[in-house]
Design a binder for these strands. Structure first.
Length: 288
DNA sequence: TAAATCCTGTCA
DNA sequence: TGACAGGATTTA
């Protein structure tokens, strides 16, 4: 479900609710979320009585920044949250009905709760206490360029794509190259760049790389401004849907006219994922 | 580099 | 009943 703009919107909407709050109770209703039953005790031990000092983001990972009252772990530690396909992180009043498939609840000292619901249970919370054996998932360690961060430009992107023989769509989905792009935004970015999704990364000329380097942050930040994209499940930290779905130019529009040229939008499976593109605006074999 | 896998829900 | 869904990892 959530790609960078959705995760960033969740970050922006939960932080005001969490700033300075202390966790009074940790309720784990499905241990898989924290990595299995043998990790729950450690997870609860660290989070109970901890205070929120910040909420960050890297790619599609949310980073809960915490401080312990007893100074354990040097006082500071982090929890990584990945929503995967159907994860929802929301702040709620205790009296609010629980969403179906609520797996984890953090009760706060103001009486409210941070809740995690995830239908398909792919989402994961990872404790980074700094203790041995408590390390970040490899996917997090290997994250590539941050599209909305400093230093995201054509030379940096070109260097990451250098020597890669794969299809450009697969390259955009590879979190080790650029962090945060998923299936929706990959298609939207390629359409705006006029690049066929099956173009090989090695075929891309400097103009195409420059267009990608400019378009990636432009599309993602525009989507953040719209509160992300809700196709079905996604909601922000306040339970609201995102409006960028109304700005999508190709994703989910198979057979409908391209908004640029009027030709029917095509659908194909590329890199194992449903892919939408305009055969006229995104011709095969030209890398600009 | 592709397919299978982890899950549940929805739609044709 | 089978295909498919916004993700990522593991296996072949």
């Amino acid at each position: 479900m959530p790609e960078l703009p959705e995760v960033e919107t969740v970050r922006l909407t939960v932080w005001p609710e969490l700033a300075g709050r202390r966790i009074s109770q940790v309720l784990i209703q499905h241990p898989d979320v924290v990595g299995g039953a043998d990790r729950t005790a450690e997870f609860v031990e660290w989070l109970h009585e901890a205070t929120f000092t910040g909420v960050g983001r890297r790619g599609k990972y949310l980073i809960l920044e915490m401080r312990r009252p007893d100074g354990k772990g040097g006082g500071q530690f982090e929890v990584l949250v990945h929503l995967r396909m159907t994860g929802k992180l929301t702040c709620a009043e205790p009296a609010d009905d629980q969403l179906p498939h609520t797996h984890l609840r953090l009760c706060l000292d103001d009486g409210r709760e941070l809740r995690f619901a995830d239908t398909r249970r792919f989402g994961r919370w990872t404790l980074l206490s700094g203790e041995p054996g408590c390390k970040a998932p490899r996917g997090y360690q290997e994250l590539g360029l941050e599209p909305l961060g400093e230093g995201f430009d054509a030379p940096a992107l070109g260097a990451r794509l250098q020597g890669r023989g794969g299809k450009i769509k697969a390259m955009l989905l590879d979190q080790r190259i650029v962090a945060g792009i998923g299936n929706i935004y990959a298609d939207e970015i390629l359409h705006r760049c006029g690049l066929h999704p099956e173009m090989r990364a090695a075929q891309l000329g400097p103009d195409a790389v420059a267009r990608l380097a400019a378009t990636i942050p432009a599309v993602l930040s525009e989507a953040v401004g719209q509160g992300g994209t809700t196709i079905r499940d996604y909601v922000d930290g306040r339970g609201r849907k995102g409006d960028f779905v109304y700005s999508l130019r190709v994703y989910g529009r198979a057979g409908e006219p391209c908004l640029a040229c009027g030709h029917a939008v095509a659908k194909a499976t590329i890199a194992g994922r449903s892919t939408f593109f305009c055969p006229v605006c995104q011709p095969a074999g030209r890398g600009g």
